[in-house]
Amino acid sequence: RRKSKRKPPPKKKMTGTLETQFTCPFCNHEKSCDVKMDRARNTGVISCTVCLEEFQTPITYLSEPVDVYSDWIDACE
């Protein structure tokens, strides 16, 4: 008699959501930077609500707010 092989359980999909508020690289306030994605103009704007620092970068249809933040961090270095 042959043993029946069980199929492995399906893999769980990533359910965690990406951050939309970030720590400002200038004033170091946590969750003080908000990202606005202007898909019509293909630009992402991130601004700090505390020190009013602002950064704008081009985006694509695949871009997420975390991509705008990482572009800002890269531009600071």
Rank of each mutant, 00 (worst) to 15 (best):
N28G: 09
C24L: 01
D67E: 10
V66T: 12
H29Y: 04
N42V: 06
G16H: 07
Y69E: 03
I46T: 04
P8N: 15
M37G: 01
C51V: 00
N42E: 15
V66E: 15
K31T: 03
F55H: 08
P65W: 02
V35H: 00
E19C: 05
P8C: 15
M37F: 02
S32D: 03
D38E: 10
T49H: 05
M37D: 03
C24P: 01
K3R: 08
Y61V: 12
E64V: 09
F26V: 11
R1N: 07
L18S: 13
R2I: 01
R2W: 03
N42R: 09
S32I: 10
K3Y: 08
C33Q: 02
K31V: 02
P10A: 12
S32Y: 01
K3H: 14
H29K: 15
T57Q: 05
Q56P: 01
P10Q: 15
V68W: 01
T57H: 15
C48G: 00
P58F: 12
S32T: 13
K36R: 08
N42Y: 02
A40H: 07
T43D: 05
P58D: 08
F22M: 14
V68L: 07
T17R: 06
Q21T: 14
E64S: 11
A75H: 11
R2G: 10
F26A: 10
K31W: 04
M37K: 01
D34H: 06
Y61I: 06
V68Q: 04
K11L: 06
T49R: 15
D67P: 03
R6Q: 11
D67S: 11
T17L: 06
T49P: 08
V68G: 01
F55A: 02
Q56D: 07
E54D: 12
M14R: 14
K13W: 01
R39I: 14
C33I: 05
V45R: 09
P65H: 06
L52V: 08
D34G: 15
T43Q: 10
R6P: 15
Q21V: 13
A75N: 09
I73Y: 09
F55V: 03
T60A: 07
A40L: 06
I59R: 01
R6H: 09
F22N: 02
S32A: 10
W72T: 02
E19N: 02
H29D: 10
T60Q: 08
E53M: 05
Q21L: 11
T49I: 01
T57M: 10
S47W: 10
K31E: 06
R1M: 03
T60P: 03
C76D: 14
P8R: 05
C48W: 00
D34P: 14
S70W: 07
K3G: 06
Y69N: 01
D71Y: 04
K36A: 15
T57V: 06
D74F: 05
T43E: 10
P25Q: 12
S63C: 09
P25W: 06
K31A: 06
R2N: 15
V68N: 00
H29A: 11
N28I: 01
W72Y: 04
N42W: 08
K13F: 07
R6T: 14
M37V: 03
T23F: 07
V45I: 04
T49F: 06
K5G: 12
D71S: 07
V50S: 12
K12A: 10
R6D: 09
E19S: 12
P25K: 03
S32C: 13
P25A: 03
L18Q: 13
I59D: 04
V68E: 00
E53N: 05
H29C: 09
P10W: 00
F26K: 15
Y61N: 14
K7G: 08
C33W: 01
H29E: 12
I73A: 12
Y69Q: 00
D71W: 04
P9F: 14
P10T: 13
W72F: 03
P58V: 11
P9H: 08
T17E: 11
F22Q: 03
C27A: 01
V68K: 02
Q56K: 08
G44E: 01
E64H: 12
P8M: 09
V68D: 01
C76E: 08
K3C: 01
T23S: 13
K31Q: 11
P58G: 11
E64L: 13
V68F: 00
T15K: 11
S47R: 14
S70G: 12
K13E: 07
K7R: 07
A75T: 11
T23D: 06
C48K: 01
R2P: 05
A75R: 15
P9D: 14
T60M: 04
E30H: 07
C33K: 01
L62W: 15
R41N: 12
D74H: 12
K12R: 05
S70Q: 09
E53T: 02
L18H: 14
Q21R: 12
S47K: 09
Y69T: 00
K13D: 07
D71I: 08
T57P: 03
K3F: 05
V50G: 08
M14G: 06
F55Q: 00
K11H: 02
K5P: 07
S4W: 05
P25Y: 15
M37E: 02
R1A: 06
T43V: 09
T23Y: 07
K3P: 03
L62N: 14
S63A: 11
R2H: 05
C51L: 00
C24Q: 01
M14V: 09
D74Y: 10
Y69A: 06
I46L: 04
Q56W: 03
W72A: 05
L62S: 12
